[in-house]
Design a binder for these strands. Sequence first.
DNA 1: CATTACCTGCAA
DNA 2: TTGCAGGTAATG
Length: 265
Amino acid sequence: MLTNIFELVYLRKARIEKLDWERMVETPSVADLYALLPGRTMQAVGRRAKWILVTLDAGWTLAVHLRMSGQLLVQGPEATPRSHVHLVLALADGRRIFFDDERKFGRVRLLDAAGLRALDASFGPEPLDPCFTPGVLGQVLAGRRVKIKVALLDQRIIAGLGNIYASEALWLAKIHPLRLASSLTQEEIARLYSAIRQVLAVAIENQGSTLRNYRNSYGESGQNQDHFQVYDRRDAPCANCGTAVMRIVVGQRSTYFCPTCQPEV
DNA sequence: CATTACCTGCAA
DNA sequence: TTGCAGGTAATG
């Protein structure tokens, strides 16, 4: 979750101070990244699905995906990178951006306008966008013979939900995770729509969920892990009915739900 | 569809 | 030692 930006930091005349895990650079080649990035100016920070998008000048966009354990940290000139910092960008004002990533799953791309359009087009609707309505959710789920939990994790169907918030949203909507997406009634879609937006809004309010690695760009933990209703709460009592929360595996991912509030398929 | 790979670290 | 972890791409 993107909780804050690098204010207006300047990458002008900056350099790549360290890059010791080249596999994190998906495109262009590492040589091209070294050629193109220095001298660029950061103009804005945005997000699409789980990609952090830093708008640069000359039509370039620096895209960063934190995957499981990545952190993007803004540090002062005196800070020492920890052992898992694999990319350091030195800024013109002396600060540095550390890409810290224990598991090395995180990725970086430098995209031109066409690359950005292609990335954007590969994702489903943004749940917090005003254009996202129950009707839109119904359309993207229509005819999908996939379990609803799997559909919610598929970024091509709907963008931005991860394993935590998929379970949380289904609990709030009282929908069993194994239901087929195509089987949801209008009413259930309406409930799911509200639940998704509610769960994300609360998570943002609580500055994200820190299980192990998540930090905002100042290195601060989130608080939303203290507000989980079902995720990581196997055997805890459901807040609605007291039934023990169950854990099952759906699409190879841990999935938590209340067997009473979210009736069987 | 399901399974495996990618990585490292931590808890059971 | 095994299993599991907030994600996704690449395989059968």
